[in-house]
Design a protein around this nucleic acid. Structure first.
Lengths: 358, 358
DNA sequence: GAGCGGCGGGAATGCGCTTTCCCGATTTCT
DNA sequence: AGAAATCGGGAAAGCGCATTCCCGCCGCTC
């Protein structure tokens, strides 16, 4: 018992399918009011729901917006997803979700699937990777995206252009000033911390992580500080926790050997890693900011109630998602490859206070 | 420059479209190996991507799974979304996302949109509402869902059946034992708390909230305690915060007037509300669990690093999403209206400790 | 060796809708 | 008033694919 079709509606209304189509789905030509009314009534009584697949097939455009994220349950991505969803709704589109865990091969598959569904646009969130192991995957992804663009698809990328993608038109990237903001964070921290800095980074090759590391080091340099040691770990809470454990041991060793040692200042390249690191320190009996400072990046909303309040860089995640999605609308050459601008804000809070009461 | 079509591939391979279709998309009849090879090569060289819309139109099934949530950025929903996404992937489906803010009217629209896209199944997460104001909306939603089911759609609901929906086949609900678990939580808390209980609930009529409140009260009764006062507020952090402010004032008043007053035990019907309440108390200079106990519900992953650790009821959110999505697969009468079972676990942590060192 | 079943392939139809093209009936302009 | 422009509606041709039906060919049996 399939849903009723436009033809049935037309027959019931005593008009041609063409006319029914014109009245029910926005057309340039609007039939007479009496006829329109009749059609509408017929549609109503039949509970007619237009078949979007058929519509899409006929006008070759689907009203679909593909969204690719690493993990929808990660608050970073879900915030972006909200923005994308918002924008999509405004454009009268629906969003198709794909989660890939950040694997270029999976991302490629997702792009292909979106292309198969003839999605009008694709938004890719999530750090690009430059690891040697992802070389092939990236090439494949780039090829797939290029093909998609050549076929008239529009793509919006959050953060970095896809590695190796030729910046053909239809491309749009929302640039996040990770490097600049990390540098600013470093400078501000350096102004208050006399001690040593350590960076807990994600896997080497993860562009977002690399950018933030580089920016932070630059900021340190500007402030006349030596470069911070960089520890590579997972880009998630577990990675932060792991690195935190290592650091905890080191901090404790230092405290005993050299009681005057200045506090370590730890910069984790994202908030969840920072939380992980903080948890590790705490589980080792260390307190923040008394025994060490900890800063993150992103300013994840759900984490704002964390104590001590995390110093971080606020990123307008939802806005970023919006922009990425919005950039895919409109005429295709308006901003071929152009980058929408987004700005963040260094936000110093308790976790890096230097007059530790805690 | 649209993507290449099956016909083009067929022509290039020197076969008929029928044959090309048979080799490229799983068919019962498999053409000879030599021909298959030729077709595959042609497809490859043309970068052929099957048009899912056309496929769907032809075999009337879309490979789409619709997911309806209140807000994808809410960790509760994003956890469920992950489970749904997982299940969808296993079934070779893609998920279509719709966020509605919990408004039945919007939910109805989303169902209609999914129906238009001929989604094979729809999963609805998020508390059903029974408010008088939602009466009409609920009726509309129920009608839309029924129509969808009659047309062969399958729907999975998290928590409660949609208000007013006739349990036709194709329906599947993942029951969450909110009431039982809340009762258990109440009993366990009552065993350790001699003081008064207060419940911070969501808006009246929100089924999930109501269930948890009812369960909690029952548990209290079983433990020989008088019913707790119920404060209604928003179902989110802000709501919890607001209620928390009121309670903070009360707690402080009590502390001054009656120094021997026992600590209040606050049950917020979900974790984010509990966090909000805790934040409010803290901003008023109160400490948990020293000045009051706080418990939540859901055990949101991102909130596990909150301090004091929140006592709550662990719900296997991801699993719930999986089950809801899985339940929509397979033959339609297997469990007409049946409920998949899910169980949670009361998890007492620091926020309700009665020997407060904090 | 003639008849028959089976198999590999193609022609054709239809999924439900949009849209161009066309045609008769009004209008409108010179 | 006659011609041209306009409008309101219908017929029909796809959109890209799956699938049913059909046909020719092969090997098989008796």
């Amino acid at each position: 018992m399939a849903a009723s079709t436009l033809t049935e509606v037309a027959r019931l209304a005593g008009v041609s399918p063409a006319t029914a189509s014109r009245v029910l789905n926005g057309s340039a030509r609007t039939p007479g009011p009496d006829i329109a009314e009749r059609v509408r009534k017929a549609a109503e009584s039949l509970g007619y729901i237009p078949n979007a697949q058929a519509q899409g097939l006929a006008k070759s455009s689907s009203g679909l917006l593909g969204l690719i994220v690493h993990d929808i349950a990660d608050p970073y991505f879900s915030a972006i997803a909200r923005g994308v969803q918002d924008a999509a709704r405004e454009q009268g589109k629906m969003v198709l979700l794909a989660t890939t865990g950040g694997t270029p091969a999976d991302e490629r598959a997702a792009v292909a699937a979106f292309a198969a569904r003839r999605a009008d646009a694709i938004v890719i969130a999530g750090s690009r990777s430059n690891r040697p192991a992802d070389q092939d995957g990236n090439a494949g992804l780039a090829a797939e995206l290029d093909r998609y663009c050549r076929n008239g698809g529009r793509v919006g990328v959050v953060g970095h252009p896809v590695v190796g993608a030729s910046a053909s038109e239809g491309y749009h990237v929302v640039a996040v000033p990770n490097e600049e903001l990390a540098a600013e964070l470093a400078r501000e921290l350096a102004a208050n911390h006399s001690g040593e800095f350590v960076i807990i980074a994600g896997p080497e090759g993860l562009l977002t992580s690399d950018d933030r590391v580089r920016g932070f080091q630059n900021g340190l340099a500007v402030a006349g500080r030596p470069p911070a040691e960089v520890m590579h770990s997972g880009f998630d809470r577990a990675g932060g926790y792991e690195a935190g454990q290592l650091l905890a041991a080191r901090i404790k060793a230092r405290q005993t050997s050299d009681s005057a040692a200045s506090r370590l200042c730890i910069f984790a390249v994202n908030d969840v890693m920072a939380i992980g690191a903080a948890a590790a320190l705490r589980s080792e009996g260390l307190r923040i900011p008394r025994d060490a400072s900890v800063a993150g990046f992103d300013d994840i909303e759900t984490l704002r109630d964390f104590r001590p309040e995390l110093s971080t860089v606020r990123l307008p995640l939802e806005e970023i998602g919006r922009l990425a999605a919005m950039g895919t609308a409109g005429d295709s050459t308006a901003d071929g490859g152009a980058a929408a601008a987004v700005t963040g804000q260094v936000t110093l809070r308790r976790s890096t206070e230097t007059d530790p009461r805690g």
